[in-house]
Design a protein around this nucleic acid. Sequence first.
RNA 1: GCCCUUGUAGCUCAGUGGUAGAGCACUCCCUUGGUAAGGGAGAGGUCACGAGUUCAAAUCUCGUCAAGGGCUCCA
Length: 599
Amino acid sequence: MPVTTSSPEPAAITLPKTSESEQLLRIRHSMSHVMAMAVQKLFPQAQVTIGPWTESGFYYDFDSPDPFSEADLKAIKKEMVKIINRKLPLERLEVSRAEAERRIQAINEPYKLEILAGIKEPISLYTLGDQWWDLCAGPHVAHTGELNAKAFELESVAGAYWRGDETKAQLQRIYGTAWETPEQLAEHQRRKAEAKRRDHRRLGTDLNLFSIEDEAGAGLVFWHPRGARMRLLIEDFWRQAHFDAGYELLYTPHVADISLWKTSGHLDFYAESMFGPMQVDERQYQLKPMNCPFHVLTYASALRSYRELPIRWAELGTVYRYERPGVMHGLMRVRGFTQDDAHVFCLPEQITAEIVAILDLTEQILSTFDFRSYEINLSTRPAKSIGEDAVWELATNGLIGALERKGWAYKVDEGGGAFYGPKIDLKIEDAIGRMWQCSTIQLDFNLPERFQLEYVAADGSRQQPIMIHRAIFGSLERFFGIMTENYAGDFPFWLAPEQIRLLPVTDEVRGYAEEVLGQLKRAGVRATLDQSGERLAKLIRNGEQMKIPVLAVIGTTEAEGGSLSLRSRREGDLGTMAVAKLIEAASLANAARSAGLQP
RNA sequence: GCCCUUGUAGCUCAGUGGUAGAGCACUCCCUUGGUAAGGGAGAGGUCACGAGUUCAAAUCUCGUCAAGGGCUCCA
């Protein structure tokens, strides 16, 4: 029996990760051996390479002259079931290096030989029955009878490079998933289906939010009216939050003379991610992959006093980056996107306070979209870096001090910072437990140096300001995708492109419906009137499919009483409400950025 | 960029060498219907694009572009 698939409640079945379950680790290790044995039985020319477990299953990479197809997976699975049913023992054998070499050469497995060269004693291998063995550290189940033939599935074939190196041989990887029980497998598949249901690419099409057009090119986003309306709401909220936090806004060009990118260093260090330059008159121009040099130039446009600092400038800056073909993914990875970029220029002693303020603003903005669970990483000085020790120490301590003042737990990525400064990265957790990195705060000792930024200190000397880069959404496109998946397209009332749809039961009430529509719109509520003339059941179905937060049924009863019958996606049947009261509730909900109509 | 898979109507997909199809959506007509699909008719396609094979190509071959699953990359 499959587990319940329709229940919105947390699943009764918990799915342990491999790293949390010794038994699953054994199962998945063994499963990959069983798969490799099955593959070599069906494709004797396939050579084995590596086959580790993953958090939800396992894979094995093969070098095979025959490309594996989805159809082959069925045959492989069938063969695996046979092996499982034979209850073959898995036995650990410790051998000398010479013995291992001899055995590997006997079966002509060059990849295994390479692996052997890289491992230390003791060298162990696991036999699977008396026909097949693999170099492996284990652990494994005692015999294949411990594997549940009804609790595994082969999921996909993919290309993978030997040793993860794209200059090395391309191998064929088969991914599988394996569990202790069929119920766990069913739950795993339910979760996969749930992720698919939330896929922002699917929802983007279904809800008519955005598209990506072949004719325009890969990785370039077209925001449709519904998506654009949402983006505007997000941007408006973002701008207001920034003004409230003491930021000013900038608008800067999309292109600039290439010499700017020489000065900034991007031409040297970032060229492969940039669109090519364009010739205009006698000059070469470069489409911007980042906003920072523009903000730096704006800073440098006047002599700054220490009294002006901190200067906080933000911009919704659209940048273009060259992404290699094949890496684009919906809104998540694109070639043109808008960063919610900001740069803070401050005095060294202001670092901690500024970082705390940025963390506060980050929390305020992310929590408005119901992201309240974060994972934070602090990355410190790498081996190859610029800047003086004292500055690095001051800056790193500033970041630590801010995190501690905020009371946020964080992990330290020793040496993981950029060459130009330490940073804080923040990941958010979505409704189905996935983590996404959006926000980043980076200190930069490089650009102020390259552009010779300065301010006049109290003693009249010229000093270099501290520069902080930060983004909260990261990219508006990417954040929009993450947010859409987080809400599964069921956007909160304040953010929905179409908040209330009026559904007239008969043509007789059309006049009244139009009057109500006018009132709602004048009050700033995003309302529409369904003109299709279909029966009510159909109007409701269409409205629900478009995930409209509130459907308002209007029949003769409502028309006579000056009211509406409300059906809320989040809140259920809200009964009959007077028009004036609905306008008040909707306006309040918009002002408070509420999820629903009721407070 | 690499491997595998795919590209047919706005969406989901059928169509394996011989006149381009279905459901939903859209338009119109009938129906005036009270909480998740009423009925009928119509319109809509350079079968991603370009070459080739063939009497004949959506279908076979090659190339290009794009998408999907991965790998690599994302200082």
